[in-house]
């Protein structure tokens, strides 16, 4: 199902472990993927709408040029993940724990990073209007060329 070209809707895949996959250009809509482990997964060019990825582990995953809206990544741990060039709006990243992640060149309008632990993570040249960075613990985080002053922090 994940690897087919057809769109996924109302799909539940909680608690599974996935490794070394490249998803085709497809839409994942109103699906539940909470508590999963994703290692070396390529989500690039996918569309994620109303999809829940809360309390997941993402290791070495690519999310380049994705369109993500109304989705939830809360409580997830992200290591070496690349979100650059994506449109990620109205998305919930509350309580995430990132290490060596890249959100550069992203539109993060109305996305929430509240209560997150961000380490060695870049938010360069991003649109941060209405984004939320309140109560975040930031270590070696770069907001160069982004409108951080328009975010809540």
């Amino acid at each position: 199902m994940l690897l087919s070209d057809s769109d996924m809707a109302d799909f539940s895949l909680t608690g599974c472990e996935l490794e070394d996959l490249a998803l085709p250009k497809k839409s994942i809509i109103a699906s539940n993927m909470a508590w999963c482990t994703f290692r070396n997964i390529d989500f690039s060019h996918t569309t994620l709408l109303n999809t829940f990825f809360d309390f997941c582990l993402f290791e070495n995953c690519k999310f380049n040029n994705i369109l993500c809206r109304y989705s939830v990544f809360s409580g997830s741990k992200m290591i070496d993940c690349d979100f650059s060039g994506s449109v990620i709006i109205h998305t919930n990243f509350c309580g995430i724990d990132t290490f060596r992640c890249n959100f550069s060149d992203c539109d993060l309008y109305f996305s929430t990073f509240n209560s997150s632990f961000l380490r060695d993570t870049d938010f360069e040249d991003c649109n941060l209007k209405k984004a939320d960075f309140v109560y975040t613990d930031q270590r070696r985080v770069s907001f160069r060329y982004s409108n951080y002053e328009e975010a809540r922090h």
């Binding site: 809360d54 109205h90 929430t112």
Partner: peptide, 9 residues
């Protein structure tokens, strides 16, 4: 207003 969530979150 804002993003969806869960009660656990």
């Amino acid at each position: 207003h804002g993003t969806a969530s869960k009660l656990r979150i």
